[in-house]
């Protein structure tokens, strides 16, 4: 048994712009409630997510990176012991162009049942993706409220 969520959104943008939005800290900050990722986005490179107050939220490693189509991140929470103890999750982002629309699929999974980490991220992804879609399509995110 595993725990898995699949999120899909269609955005009126190009795969290149979407890739840039997913990997550029200044861009990310605008739709990810002030959170940024640090990495050089190359396979085997370290990756981490930094909260607006400077704390490290999650760490991991880039497993696959195929610009602008596919990004796989080994991902573990760092500041909640219960989540950290579950070990690494895997987050796969796939970008596919469909006409003038770009499809973004995010699969976040771990090979244990009822994962608390997957449950914890499940509240965040829909809001982040709605914000990302709005930012890419209109130039403005829906909400800039920072995470606690």
């Amino acid at each position: 048994m595993s725990s898995r969520f699949v999120y899909v959104t269609y955005i009126r943008t190009t795969p290149e712009k979407l890739w840039e939005a997913l990997t550029t800290p200044t861009f990310m900050k605008r739709y990810w409630y002030g959170v940024v990722a640090e990495s050089d986005w190359k396979p085997a490179s370290p990756w981490k997510l930094i909260l607006p107050d400077g704390r490290t939220a999650d760490t991991g490693e880039i497993l696959e990176a195929e610009q602008p189509k596919r990004l796989v991140i080994k991902w573990r929470n760092e500041f909640r012991p219960q989540l950290k103890a579950e070990g690494y999750t895997r987050c796969t982002m796939e970008i596919a162009q469909e006409g003038d629309i770009t499809k973004l699929s995010i699969v976040h999974e771990i090979d244990i049942p009822d994962s608390k980490t997957i449950e914890a991220v499940s509240g965040g992804w829909p809001r982040i993706l709605s914000n990302l879609k709005s930012l890419l399509e209109t130039g403005e995110p829906l909400s800039t409220t920072k995470v606690a």
């Binding site: 898995r4 969520f5 699949v6 999120y7 899909v8 959104t9 269609y10 699929s105 699969v107 992804w125 829909p126 809001r127 993706l129 709605s130 914000n131 879609k133 709005s134 829906l142 909400s143």
Partner: peptide
């Protein structure tokens, strides 16, 4: 797009995709 699917082995699994409903809520 409220349900997304993935092939896992031989079976097609269905997932609740809350993103479009969230888009409506945010709007």
């Amino acid at each position: 797009n409220i349900v997304s699917t993935r092939k896992v082995g031989r079976s097609k699994l269905h997932f609740l995709n809350p993103v479009p409903i969230n888009d409506i809520a945010e709007r």
